[in-house]
Computed example of a mutant assay.
Amino acid sequence: MKRQTILLKRNLNAMLNALPLTELVFVALNGVPGVTSARVNCEESGGLIVSFLYGGVGLLNVPHEYFDRFGLLQPS
């Protein structure tokens, strides 16, 4: 397994703005099959750069709709 990195930001239009960003990110990533050992690397551009191990094939590809359920977005 190779460690991968993504940037996740808060979706300001979401109803979950009262919860800490870190908590939302970990809850969302823990629900993705194959993702383990998630950790925050740093804060950047109003979001969090998070790294994790992915046990699937290739790079992690999560639909935008999944992160949107947690009030998050992954900038392109």
Rank of each mutant, 00 (worst) to 15 (best):
M1A: 09
P63G: 11
E44C: 13
K9D: 11
G55E: 13
G58M: 01
K9Y: 09
L48T: 06
P33M: 09
G55A: 09
F26K: 10
R39P: 11
A38S: 12
E65T: 11
V62L: 02
G31V: 10
G34S: 08
S45M: 07
L29I: 05
N11E: 09
E43H: 15
T22Q: 14
G31M: 08
P75Y: 03
N30L: 12
G55I: 08
G47L: 05
V57N: 13
S37W: 15
C42M: 13
P75D: 03
S76N: 15
L8K: 04
N30S: 13
R69T: 07
L48M: 06
G46Y: 08
F67T: 00
R10M: 10
V32F: 04
I49K: 06
L53C: 14
T22V: 14
A18E: 14
L48K: 04
G47E: 05
V62F: 04
E65S: 13
E23S: 15
P75I: 05
E44A: 14
T36V: 15
G56D: 04
F52V: 00
L8W: 02
G58I: 00
P33D: 05
V27F: 14
L21D: 06
G31Y: 09
E23P: 12
P33A: 11
H64L: 06
L16A: 10
P20D: 12
Q4M: 07
V40W: 10
A14Y: 05
P63W: 07
M1N: 15
N41H: 14
T36S: 12
G58E: 04
V62M: 01
F52T: 00
V62E: 03
T5V: 11
A14E: 02
Q74E: 04
N30I: 09
R10K: 08
P20Y: 10
N61W: 07
L7S: 07
L72M: 05
T5P: 07
L59T: 06
G71D: 03
R39Q: 15
V40D: 12
N13R: 13
V40Q: 14
N41L: 14
L12G: 07
P33K: 05
G56V: 00
K9N: 01
G56E: 00
S51D: 12
Y54R: 00
G58D: 02
I6T: 02
L48G: 00
R39W: 15
M15C: 13
V25I: 13
E23L: 11
V32E: 02
V50H: 03
N30W: 13
R39E: 15
V25P: 02
L73P: 03
A38F: 11
G58N: 05
L59K: 10
E65C: 12
L72A: 05
L60F: 03
F70R: 00
C42S: 15
G71Y: 01
L21N: 04
G34I: 11
L53F: 12
R3G: 10
E23K: 14
G46T: 04
F67M: 00
G71F: 00
V57Y: 12
L73S: 07
G56A: 05
